[in-house]
Amino acid sequence: MRIHFEKISYIYDRNLPFAHTALSDIELDIREGKITAIIGETGSGKSTLVQHLNALLIPSSGQIELGDHLIKANEKNKNLKKLRKEVGLVFQFPEYQLFESTILDDVAFGPIRFGISKEESYERARSALSNVGISPILYDRNPMELSGGQKRRVAIAGILALDPKILVLDEPAAGLDPEGAKRLVDLIVSLNREFNKTIILVSHDNDMVYSYTDDTVFMRDGRVIYHGPTLDLFNDGELIKKNHLLLPTVVNFKNRLREAGFEVDENARTIEQIAEAVSRRISR
């Protein structure tokens, strides 16, 4: 499913004295089937951009191509609901959206809203819950009885049950402990590798972005400063310096090794790869 932003701008509170341009002239083509990160400081426009992906926001100017849907500014856009089935958006701290009396009911809620039969909705719910690693014993429990990490996975299952082609997640690991965060990120990666879903991740965690994503969109003041392979962005010293980007720990270490005279391949991404490269040099 194609994602193409053409000359997109978005202005909040357009007709009021405190109008604020959140997005200016965005041109973006997000690669299908890949994991793309969207990074940038608070206020860079990340959340605004992401809310255009399922038409929660309609651009002030320009148009967006989302698969078969064409969202144009200043036009009455129809069938937005259908779009929301194809682009699943998971907000930050999604566990707060749980409200049904049982987990299964909550996960089935979404598909039912989209007109899918009750039977199939519950089937999908079971399947989604199993994908996120929630055991059937918990299906009848009240969401409030679960731990934070479990609730989060249930909330994500609620979106997965819609079987979206594109999954957008805003800070999915926020507030989770390292184990929970790792489990979640592994889940997200598997959704991409196994189910070939296009994943878009908004994150502040450059370590996670570096380790897991294929492409990165770097935003600043409502504009796209960089869009390309994640590896290339974090290897570009100039860009990093100019934009005060926080270096992933691994990259920082790699750079310091280089400064100390060790040759480490630019494409070495993990600690394992770095250790191997350096060890080989030492053994020579």
Partner: peptide, 16 residues
């Protein structure tokens, strides 16, 4: 602000 967030999250789940 939170209400707005919840509305957006539920809209994303198909709530009208």
């Amino acid at each position: 602000l939170e209400a707005e967030r919840i509305v957006n999250a539920q809209k994303s789940r198909g709530v009208d």
